[in-house]
Write a protein that binds this DNA or RNA. Structure first.
Lengths: 204, 204
DNA sequence: ACCGCCGGATGACAAATGTCATGCGCACGG
DNA sequence: CCGTGCGCATGACATTTGTCATCCGGCGGT
């Protein structure tokens, strides 16, 4: 018995998505039964195709692969989840795990690890890059509060305090306070650096 | 006769690179004869494998795919060049063309266009997304001077004026002047926005 | 009941940033 | 040879940003 493993591929760049499908297609125990380009289409597609393993990119329109993973995990806990990402940000790993992911792969790992990971998670194993796991543990949890994160995210595009205040329905002073505490927590010297560091760590 | 088309693949993320190789491998008139992960390894690999078409990602360590394209075009003008990128930035298209590229593809185009493009450039055609071409023409050329671009690029990580001045061997005032003119040319209100816009346009 | 933390706000102050006028030397095109 | 634009610099100025002290109400622990 042991029919093929049914895989869903979620990735917004079609060229990459179809290339990954071609790659997995070379394995004869794996079959890509569905492809989606948006995070918010994942759950429905998983349901519709009786998927064994969902392969989720993080950066996607609609919602992130992490958010999608959380939804699938809540609704269909038996589906295995592999999170795939361009950026090996420790904070991403942390939130992926909290969302119920079974594997976390970075796109600059060898291609062979992809099919490997699919088989392993189906066998109940977890697949995590040990270096990244160490980094995630070493760096500790996100020190920012919800509000601080929100304000920092909004400030990322270069908006001024006045714009931020208007957009978030806060006073300018409050915006500055939040940014100030964020800057201190991240041990940097201005909002631009704060944004950069928070991004790098996957805290944004 | 017409043996297979010899292709070189340059892309830093191995999973994507090997997936693209798998994709091209499905075409029986195309053969991936070499793969590199760095821009500065492209020229040697092209030489070593008698490549017909080089497929170059832009974002790579060593040097960008555009820079690599320029070098190959200079040294081996008969080799066809396909530039592949995640970001459809008009400025990228412009510089790719100036570097001698024959095709410009974005990764969220359908996968079928990849093999298509390889065949077309070999037949002497140019392959460019018409929407992007229009955007590139509409937006005009990069208005920033060399120095302005340099300072803006250095400012992108959130460095302060003092740090920029030290790094670039300029006075703080001069740094501020350059950033100020850049801000005006880009019609934005602060350096952070200037960085963002310049990035989006591919001017940075 | 009390402490601590979060969200939210104000006001005062210092430092960084953005603007503008102005000046100099150099290169390049007409 | 003259104008223009660039690179580089100063100084003065207004605005924005970052810091700090202080305040309030609410909520979760102990």
């Amino acid at each position: 018995m042991s029919s093929t493993i049914k895989v869903l591929l979620a990735e917004d760049q079609s060229m990459v998505r179809e290339a990954l499908a071609a790659l997995l297609g070379l394995e004869d125990d794996i079959e890509v039964v569905a492809q989606v380009a948006r995070g918010d289409e994942v759950l429905a597609a998983v349901r519709a195709h009786d998927v064994d393993v969902a392969l989720l990119d993080i950066e996607m329109p609609g919602c992130t692969g992490i958010e999608a993973a959380a939804r699938v995990h809540r609704e269909l806990p038996s589906v295995k989840l592999v999170v795939l990402t361009t950026f090996g940000r420790p904070g991403y790993l942390r939130s992926a795990m909290e969302a119920g992911a079974d594997a976390f792969l970075v796109k600059d790992a060898p291609a062979a690890q992809l099919a490997e990971a699919v088989r392993k998670v189906l066998a109940g194993e977890r697949v995590i890059d040990p270096t990244l796991a160490a980094a995630a543990l070493a760096e500790g949890a996100n020190p920012l509060t919800d509000r601080e994160r929100e304000v920092l995210r909004a400030a990322a595009d270069g908006s001024t305090n006045a714009e931020l205040a208007a957009a978030l329905h806060l006073s300018q002073g409050t915006v500055r306070n939040y940014l100030s505490t964020a800057i201190q927590k991240l041990a940097v010297r201005n909002r631009a650096e704060a944004v950069r560091i928070a991004r790098e760590k996957g805290w944004l």
